[in-house]
Design a protein around this nucleic acid. Sequence first.
DNA 1: TGACAAGTGGAGACCCCCGTCCACTTGGCT
DNA 2: AGCCAAGTGGACGGGGGTCTCCACTTGTCA
Lengths: 204, 204
Amino acid sequence: MTASQSQLRADAQENRARVLAVARELFAERGIDVPMAAIARRAGVGVATLYRRFPTKESLVMEAFTEQFAHCQAVIDKALLDEDPWRGFRTVIENVCLLQATDRGFTAAFVSTFPELHSEVRDRTWEGFAALVERAKESGQLRADFSPHDLTLVLLANSGLAGVPVEMAVAASQRLVAYLLEAFRTGTDALPPPVPLSLDLVLC
Amino acid sequence: MTASQSQLRADAQENRARVLAVARELFAERGIDVPMAAIARRAGVGVATLYRRFPTKESLVMEAFTEQFAHCQAVIDKALLDEDPWRGFRTVIENVCLLQATDRGFTAAFVSTFPELHSEVRDRTWEGFAALVERAKESGQLRADFSPHDLTLVLLANSGLAGVPVEMAVAASQRLVAYLLEAFRTGTDALPPPVPLSLDLVLC
DNA sequence: TGACAAGTGGAGACCCCCGTCCACTTGGCT
DNA sequence: AGCCAAGTGGACGGGGGTCTCCACTTGTCA
């Protein structure tokens, strides 16, 4: 029991965890633009504490979203094990888009922390997805001119929905994904119902 | 020749025009978040001049994008006159998405100035598009479960591409639109080529 | 229990934004 | 030519963001 996990004092360790939890909450709710002061306030600590644990805002963002990144990776890995190539492909797109629609900060965190520490993760993800695409094409269920780059296209498009209230964003995302999957495939399915989006909603 | 267009002094009139031109440029290039000071600087005037002509930033945005709004309206009106319902429908979506991909500030301007002065324009646009949808459905070329709200969905999705460099955004937008139109229709077309988007590009 | 390193919070330095104020300049009319 | 209202630009107030500094508190270990 010398250093169960780190040499942080017990109270400090607890504070750190609470900050991280609050950060995840607020980032998901309001995006990564929430002020550090807001996170500190809701966590019941001063800003200094926050900066002592996370030297920069970006490092906090990075740490806060690590589990989401891991989740994505897991989704892809699991999909590769699926016996039905199309179902694997579809599941990846659906899950990632759902995550994106649910967690407001996800995309921004993804891109803002991407170039740095995660290049290996990125490569692994990319390879995994490329393999998934290949499999799905070979099985004849995915159109031949689909490009792995289209994943980015989907992600970018789906990120455009981030502005609307969460439940709407989720519904809208589902419909968008359904449309796109239909275009990607060679069959036809029923779409989820239309979402009564209004342009007034786009900014907060 | 008493007051050819306004009672502004000649030099003031020229300054105003230059400010407006510069604003359009910068808004298109960098989005509506460009500082007023940047616009003033590039236009070769002081900020005061800028605020004298446009009491608030929003009014400048509004005025700068009026022609784009009008363009949208014109596109819809013209499409309603098209003898081929599907082509009209498709053209509207393609044109508006192209505008959106080309002009970085467009979407933000659209939504940020929408609630106020343009509600009548909005309604007219909406009605026009709804009619377009109806026509295209009746002709059997547009799927029956397409909702006019899906226009907003398309616009939101397409706005997600705003972050990447313009040429890429245009290409990406074209591919996205092609995918979506394919899903909206009942036929099949060749897609434009894949765009080698990388996630690193998303933020500037 | 006491000493001290580790931890803390709030004030404030620094920066960037919108919008205003005011002393100075300049176009246009007589 | 000369007057003056119209026009101008830069300094500045106010707000909000990130991150730092430092005097004070608190957990921990002997």
